[in-house]
């Protein structure tokens, strides 16, 4: 199994797309933390200034988009093999397809964690730079800042695993990539906006709360900023996403994964 995981990691390391997506995740995180920073303390936005804990935390926890990019990477790890017919060689070398799926999930978790780490460091860094520029006191404890970066690592890793599961279920790369964004930005937003009690259980929203985002800031789309309800405890949110990923992977292994490679 180690050999298989190393193979999947080598595949990722030799794809320019991996680095491109990491750059996109880093750039989006920097952009959104700058935007949040501008909103912070501006009247009418409802975001407190970065000189107080709540305000600073809206800037340092905008790691959600990087997590979505990690999910996209995960899906490409799985169904990118069909776009370029490389699945043939993969399954010739390892005919046990479920083992390949497992190795892909573990490899995606590792790379997803890197995405989360990079995003967490960028968001925290941008927040701290602005705090320093204003000559403010850092209102968040070091342990909170570190815990939020660690949460971004866990959230991105888990969404990457979920991406692998979804990509194993749906062989079309384009459909999955569009599907991931539509789900996170539109569907979760609508469901979360209509039923605030369901909101903590939505996987992408739950992933962002792992990184310390308030539930109101956790959603990506129109429901962003809409308050109400509390996030799930860390372990519960992590377990929820892992369980959804495992369930989707199980369905994939019973259906799409068995299909012919032509």
């Amino acid at each position: 199994m180690t050999r298989l995981i190393r193979t999947e990691l080598l595949k990722l390391a030799t794809m320019r797309l991996t680095y491109g997506l990491l750059a996109v995740a880093a750039a989006l995180t920097a952009l959104f933390s700058l935007l949040e920073n501008n909103r912070a303390g501006t009247s009418g936005t409802g975001v407190p200034p970065t000189s107080i804990a709540d305000g600073l935390r809206t800037v340092t926890t905008v790691t959600g988009f990087a997590m979505l990019i990690a999910a996209v990477l995960g899906s490409i790890v799985a169904n990118g093999e069909f776009r370029h017919s490389t699945a043939t060689l993969t399954y010739l070398a390892t005919p046990r397809r479920a083992r390949v799926l497992g190795a892909k999930a573990i490899a995606a978790v590792s790379v997803g964690a890197v995405f989360g780490l990079v995003a967490g460091i960028i968001a925290t860094g941008v927040g701290l730079i602005f705090v320093a520029a204003h000559g403010d006191h850092v209102a968040l404890s070091t342990s909170t800042l570190i815990a939020d970066v660690a949460g971004a690592v866990v959230g991105a890793a888990l969404l990457a695993a979920l991406g692998v599961a979804v990509g194993s279920l749906v062989r079309s790369q384009l459909a999955t990539v569009i599907g991931i964004f539509v789900w996170a930005i539109i569907i979760e937003s609508i469901i979360g906006g209509l039923y605030t009690s369901v909101r903590p259980y939505l996987p992408c929203t739950a992933a962002t709360t792992l990184a310390g985002a308030k539930l109101g800031n956790a959603a990506f789309g129109p429901a962003h900023g809409l308050n109400g309800g509390g996030p799930l405890p860390f372990a519960a949110a992590a377990a929820l996403i892992a369980a959804i990923a495992a369930a989707v992977a199980l369905i994939a292994s019973r259906t799409t994964l068995r299909r012919d490679i032509t």
């Binding site: 030799t14 794809m15 017919s85 043939t88 070398a93």
Partner: peptide, 24 residues
């Protein structure tokens, strides 16, 4: 097989390195 082509962005050597690792 006809379509067991490599990922177009990869070098021939990396394609074979991956196959070598996968097959031991």
């Amino acid at each position: 097989l006809e379509s067991s082509l490599a990922y177009p962005g990869r070098s021939a050597r990396n394609h074979l390195r991956i196959a070598a690792l996968a097959s031991g």
